[in-house]
């Protein structure tokens, strides 16, 4: 399969997510980690953008980072899949390569 894009920055601080969405080919996946997980909280402008991206990209977020930041599972956009670190590792094996939008 294609690329696993990893975004670790809040969309309100940096343009990492915006650039990732612009440069992620259809079918590639997006994983939110660290401060990147703030993008998944709805309602918000970033959540609206991500909701649209779901048409072309499987979307994942790291549970440990959500929990650390007080983001409850039921506050997240529909269709996002949560993974733990074991799931993070598994994703990297399922996709051919990773691109971290640092």
């Amino acid at each position: 399969m294609s690329v696993l894009h990893i975004v670790n920055k809040s969309p309100y601080d940096r343009n990492s997510l915006e650039t990732c969405l612009r440069l992620a080919a259809a079918g590639s996946a997006i994983l939110l980690i660290e401060d990147g997980v703030y993008a998944a909280r709805k309602p918000s402008s970033a959540a609206d953008t991500l909701q649209q991206a779901l048409d072309n990209h499987p979307l994942y977020a790291l549970q440990a980072d959500l929990q650390a930041r007080g983001l409850a599972t039921d506050s997240l956009i529909d269709g996002i899949q949560l993974v733990d670190y074991d799931g993070f590792v598994k994703l990297t094996t399922e996709y051919d390569k990773t691109q971290s939008w640092l």
Binding site: I33, E34, D35, Y85, V89, K90
Partner: peptide, 19 residues
């Protein structure tokens, strides 16, 4: 930054999975 923590947890999980 959280980078080193994230890398550590990832590495640990990868080893746990037998990689």
């Amino acid at each position: 930054h959280q980078a080193s923590d994230s890398a550590y947890h990832f590495t640990e999980a990868a080893l746990r999975a037998g990689h």
